[in-house]
Design a binder for these strands. Sequence first.
DNA 1: TCTTAGATTTAGAATAATTCTAATTCAAAA
DNA 2: TTTTGAATTAGAATTATTCTAAATCTAAGA
Lengths: 124, 124
Amino acid sequence: MARYQQIIEELILTGGRHLTAEQIYLRLKESHPSLVLATVYNNLNELTRQGKIRRISLEGFPDRYDAPTRHDHLVCTVCGGLTDLPLPDLTEWIEQQTKTPIEGYDLKIHWVCPKCRAAQGTTA
Amino acid sequence: MARYQQIIEELILTGGRHLTAEQIYLRLKESHPSLVLATVYNNLNELTRQGKIRRISLEGFPDRYDAPTRHDHLVCTVCGGLTDLPLPDLTEWIEQQTKTPIEGYDLKIHWVCPKCRAAQGTTA
DNA sequence: TCTTAGATTTAGAATAATTCTAATTCAAAA
DNA sequence: TTTTGAATTAGAATTATTCTAAATCTAAGA
């Protein structure tokens, strides 16, 4: 069962990174016309719960889904675009600072991506 | 003008931290019965734009509003509760690592708060 | 004082992402 | 072949937030 779980996972891990639920739905609908958006959400929730994928929540934009490998993200404050950023793992440092065990963390770095920086130079 | 801007700002900075728009609305409605939720949102957006308050987005919970001082947050993965955590500023370290100027960052640390940890021990 | 102009607030409809519910379908086991 | 439980489907519901248009207010100018 879980007819769609595997192809959704594969699409997220290899077919395109940082996809939204709707993008996943539209891509898979081509080859699986009976697929429905609610099924995509169901599977995304299940995969996230199992730790096979990672959900990235962004202010003002729909959630995106990513590989669960440990890495951080640059978020463009202009276009909302996401870029992977593999900074060193801060877990131990945080636990030393807080003197408390933690489950993990979510680090989003705000920048203006090169494309938007160029566009700013043009208009401003 | 901006009749409500100041009292909203004051409530966020001093009257209670990590409040939602609705909590702010309910508290102020007592003393200002004509106040409407849309006005709260308008003012929260304006205050955020001006950098006088900070918006904190949490997965699955409404946004909360906080003082704009630089600090990080512990987020309980069980109850969603927020706790302030003043870790050292990582901006310079991140800029060294990425070799790119950044605008700031958002660091949320996932833990189980003491209250939920105790409750877990009880039930599990 | 009266008028005007601009901004703010109000009221409530609209939006959009996501979840929920109930009915249907499916796959495997009995 | 029948049963059973889980997954999918369809579409309604939810919820936080935004939007729109009308009403209100404030301050300035005549």
